[in-house]
């Protein structure tokens, strides 16, 4: 647990009208550094972030950010910048006008607001002619950059970013990743949500896994990676000699079961491994020693959804 928590959730439950549960008895602490909030769509990530930024209030439990109750407490935004998930803008504004207007509302004078807009545009790499174009003409990646830029107005200590990579092109993803790295070095803390681990694992020091409104696991990236490796994997292997390969695999301690699917030319194996890490290490050796050709190899459970399903069923 971090020494000085920035955000604290204590047994927080949030439901929406129609008995839709957003968060369910969620207790979490977000410390300094970069924290990734991971979960599939509808897991409760946005609810978590909206509670943290005081846009909604918990039905049960308590939320605090920098030690204060955030609900309707706009004072927190002297220290917190928030990038919303939704892709909404005032259609007639250019990128620069958008940021200048928000800087003015943030409390900057007219001249300061222009400077501030320029500063944040530079950070996100939009300090060129594109900033003078209307936002509606921007690509998804550029819009994501503008949204991140508006969150950085006022140089906040904590950035809360709701799916900043969603829909962005690989160049924007890489660029924003570097921006977050630089901010981390400057001492800015970031809470970033995503549904893809590899988007955040490069720069996040802590990961929190959230699913169906529950916090399932948390810890350093390494531990989350380990969870992916550790839970039983189903592995699909397409080969012309499924029986021969099955004989060699079934005696391996890392293999729990092997199922042969005979379909003539489409013969294949389904392997269930309780120790995938060990299995992935052993398999190449077996294939080389036996000379069995493999046409296709796929681990269908090597993703977050599989980890969530596994953790839920434990």
């Amino acid at each position: 647990m971090a020494k000085s928590p920035l955000i604290v959730f204590e047994h927080v439950t949030k439901w929406y009208s129609g008995n839709v549960i957003g968060l369910n008895q969620c207790s979490a602490t977000i410390g300094k550094g970069i924290t990734g909030l991971l979960g599939p769509n509808g897991a409760g990530k946005s609810t978590f972030l909206k509670l943290a930024t005081g846009q909604i209030y918990p039905n049960i439990g308590q939320v605090s950010i920098f030690g204060v109750n955030p609900f309707a407490n706009t004072g927190i935004f002297t220290k917190v910048g928030y990038c919303p998930e939704q892709d909404a803008f005032w259609s007639w504004m250019t990128g620069k006008e958008f940021l200048v207007n928000l800087s003015l509302v943030h409390g900057f004078s007219k001249k300061e607001a222009k400077d501030e807009a320029k500063r944040v545009l530079e950070i996100v790499g939009l300090d060129d002619a594109r900033a003078d174009r209307r936002i509606v003409t921007y690509s998804k990646g550029m819009r994501q950059r503008v949204k991140v830029a508006q969150a950085m107005i006022g140089d906040p200590e904590l950035l809360i970013l709701d799916e900043p990579f969603a829909g962005a092109d690989p160049i924007t993803r890489a660029y924003l990743g570097k921006v977050f790295e630089k901010l981390k070095k400057k001492g800015v803390s970031i809470l970033i949500s995503s549904h893809v681990l590899h988007e955040v694992e490069a720069f996040a020091s802590q990961i929190k896994l959230i699913y169906r409104g529950r916090l399932l696991a948390e810890g350093p990236v390494k531990r989350i990676r380990q969870l992916i490796y550790d839970h039983p994997h189903r592995i699909f292997i397409k080969t012309k000699s499924p029986r021969k390969l099955a004989q060699h695999l079934i005696i391996e301690p890392s293999v729990s079961s092997v199922e042969i699917s005979n379909g003539g030319k489409n013969s294949s194996l389904w392997v269930l491994s309780k120790n995938p890490y060990e299995f992935y290490r052993t398999l190449p050796k077996i294939l080389i020693d036996t000379g069995i050709p493999v046409e296709e190899f796929q681990s269908v459970d090597d993703n977050l959804q599989a980890v969530f399903d596994y953790l839920i069923s434990r």
Binding site: A72, T74, G75, F77, P84, A88, G154
Partner: peptide
């Protein structure tokens, strides 16, 4: 509905 109100609500001015 289009959530642009969020941009006002996340500024340090009284609601």
């Amino acid at each position: 509905e289009d959530r642009t109100i969020t941009y006002w609500l996340i500024r340090p001015i009284p609601r």
